[in-house]
Each structure stands twice: as structure tokens, then as C-alpha cells.
């Protein structure tokens, strides 16, 4: 319910902003002749080769084509995105440092892992660009038949789920779903996405929770069977997922997904932010990005959000994560 409301706010909001953005951006363009004078650093707070890294590199490459100065991705990996955040916070708020963010940063605020640095207060959003959808699946030879069957079994005995980082997005998403359905779950953390996949295909855990893009090829190959999609609408774009129910359809309002966006440090001049937003939008409209977005199956939800909406969406996410974290005892 809340999510649906949010979605409509997002759509209406982005329509409204799209209507007045043309005047905004042309005004911004005039006032910033001296920005950017040197390359802009895009801080990628995750390791090389991760999904967030791949996205940031591609997006920086596309954006740079239309800018006087390039946007250069720099990896500052560690502590679930916090090292990169702390680094970006340590730089001047002149717009030469842009930070890529994901739900991990909101979760850090919820759990207080960032210590006295509050992400939502210290950074200002540029735009949310991409959103991933979660899919729950089981190994092909699993006894679990479908989602209803899984929920039924989950009420009788504990179901083990594989994911990465305890207290992270996988963990909270799963617990939100468990809470809504009344399943008893056991989160089994692995060091990396590849170890999760190996554990699932090898049958060490009962259920596999992963992003659509990571799951879909295993579904096509018959290695795993999809149980439920964490979304409001069915995914009709992919044949193999046409018949997979969604959480909302089953009556559970859990549609948490992973998103990626750009932010800058608080106090960055407005014209700089306008310039960046304009360039982000231009890149979003290119055929090259559309193809990339389609290839990575992140085009299913309408994910682009302008600063205000992005901020609201993050605040909504905060509430959702806060609730789950309190229920599961991750947060006291």
C-alpha cells in the first residue's frame, strides 16, 4: 500500500519535474561556465567487478561523452559502501566529487554503522538512475513446489536462505518477507555473490534470493525455479517469469529492490547540481544506456528519480528498513 502510494508520487512527481526541467536546466547551464574545469571524480564505494561498479563505469563512460571534462570512476571499496561515503564526505563540496549510492547507505543510517555520519543528512541527491528487482527461487530439484508451498513449509520449519552481508540489504529484504508471510527463516551469509550462487546450485541452502539479472539465466537454464518476484506487477517481458506470482499479488506488500543513484556532499552549489542532473538525464536518454539498461534487466521498474523524489524515496526506504531492523532485533 505504502509502496504503491510512493510509486504514484514518484510518477506524478517525475512528470511534474520533467515539465519544468527544461527551463531549470537552461538557466543552470548559463551560470556554470567555469564548472567543470577539471575531471569530476565518481566515487564507487564498492569493489571492481561488482554490479554497482559495472553500472557506474558504464554510466560515467556515457556521461563523459557529452561533457567538457570526464567523469572518472574511482573505487573506494569497504565496509558495505561506508569507506567510499566517508571518503566523499572528506572532499570539498564543490561538485568535483560525486558519490554513487545504494540502499546499503540508507541501511547504514538505520543501523548506525556509519557512526556519527548520517548519510541522509550529509549528502544531497542528484538522481536515482537504476533499480533492480529481487526474485526468490529454489534449486531445480528442491521439494518446494511453489510460493504457497514455501510459505506453508516455512511455518512448520526453518527455511535457509543464501545471501551476502549479514545486516545488509539481502538480510533485511528476506526478513521483511518472512515477517509479512509468517515464515521462519534462517539467513545464511556468504562472502560474495559467486559463493551464493555456488551454494544454491550445490544445494547447501533451501532458497535463493538474488537480483533478477543474476537469477534469470539460471532460470532459463533450468538450474533454479522461480517462486516469487518481489514486485507489484508480473514481469511479462521475460517468458520464463510470466507465470511467476508477485509478492503484492499474493497479498504481501514487500517490494524492496536495490537501486543505484548519484549524490553530492551537502552544500554543493545549486548550479553545479543542476548541471550534473542535466548531464545524468542526457545520458539516461541515450540509446547506449537504454540498451545497457535493457541488457541488465533494470528497465522493468520506472526507476529514474529527480532530486526531490529521490530524497523522498530514500526516506521511505529508511522507514521500511527501520521497521524490519527493529522487528528482527538488528536494531534495538
Amino acid at each position: 500500500m505504502k509502496k504503491r502510494f510512493l510509486l504514484s508520487v514518484m510518477i506524478i512527481g517525475s512528470l511534474l519535474l520533467a515539465a519544468c526541467s527544461s527551463s531549470q536546466s537552461s538557466a543552470g547551464n548559463k551560470g556554470n561556465k567555469d564548472y567543470p574545469k577539471r575531471p569530476i571524480e565518481l566515487v564507487v564505494p564498492f569493489g571492481e567487478g561488482s554490479a554497482s561498479d559495472t553500472f557506474a563505469r558504464k554510466y560515467a563512460e556515457i556521461m563523459s561523452k557529452d561533457m567538457d571534462q570526464p567523469l572518472q570512476p574511482v573505487n573506494k571499496d569497504g565496509s558495505g559502501g561506508l569507506v567510499g561515503m566517508v571518503y566523499a564526505h572528506g572532499q570539498a563540496n564543490d561538485g568535483y566529487t560525486v558519490l554513487e549510492v545504494t540502499p546499503s547507505h540508507v541501511i547504514a543510517d538505520v543501523l548506525g554503522t556509519g557512526k556519527n555520519m548520517k548519510f541522509l543528512e550529509e549528502f544531497e541527491p542528484i538522481a536515482r538512475i537504476q533499480e533492480d528487482i529481487y526474485v526468490l527461487s529454489v534449486p531445480a530439484n528442491s521439494k518446494i513446489k511453489d510460493f504457497d508451498n514455501l510459505v506453508k513449509m516455512g511455518k512448520e520449519k526453518e527455511i535457509s536462505f543464501a545471501g551476502v552481508s549479514p545486516g545488509g540489504l539481502d538480510d533485511l529484504t528476506l526478513n521483511a518477507l518472512a515477517d509479512a508471510t509468517g515464515m521462519k527463516v534462517k539467513f545464511v551469509p556468504y562472502g560474495s555473490g559467486s559463493e551464493v550462487k555456488a551454494a544454491v546450485l550445490g544445494g547447501e541452502v533451501d532458497v535463493y534470493l538474488d537480483k533478477l539479472i543474476n537469477t534469470v539465466n539460471y532460470i532459463k537454464d533450468g538450474k533454479v525455479r522461480p517462486m516469487v518476484v518481489l514486485n507489484d506487477k508480473r514481469i511479462t517481458q521475460i517468458d520464463e517469469l510470466k507465470d511467476t506470482p508477485t509478492t503484492v499479488e499474493k497479498g504481501y506488500d514487500v517490494t524492496i529492490g536495490s537501486w543505484r543513484g548519484f549524490v553530492v556532499k551537502k552544500g554543493t552549489p545549486q548550479e553545479v547540481k543542476d548541471y550534473l542532473l542535466e548531464q545524468v538525464k542526457k545520458a539516461y536518454e541515450t540509446e547506449e544506456y537504454k540498451k545497457f539498461n535493457e541488457d541488465s534487466l533494470t528497465n522493468i521498474r520506472d526507476s529514474f528519480l529527480e532530486p526531490e523524489e529521490f530524497k523522498k524515496a530514500m526516506q521511505e526506504d529508511y522507514k521500511v528498513f527501520d521497521k524490519v531492523a527493529k522487528q528482527t532485533g538488528l536494531k534495538k
Binding site: T54, N214, N217, K223
Partner: peptide
């Protein structure tokens, strides 16, 4: 893992 990411940047999705 990074070689796979390089393939993803070329529009090729890793998987079976």
C-alpha cells in the same frame, strides 16, 4: 569476477 564484469560492460550477461 572482473573478467565477467568486463563482459557485462560489453553487453554480455554472465551465466550458464
Amino acid at each position: 569476477a572482473i573478467i565477467l564484469a568486463a563482459l557485462a560492460l560489453q553487453g554480455l550477461q554472465p551465466g550458464p
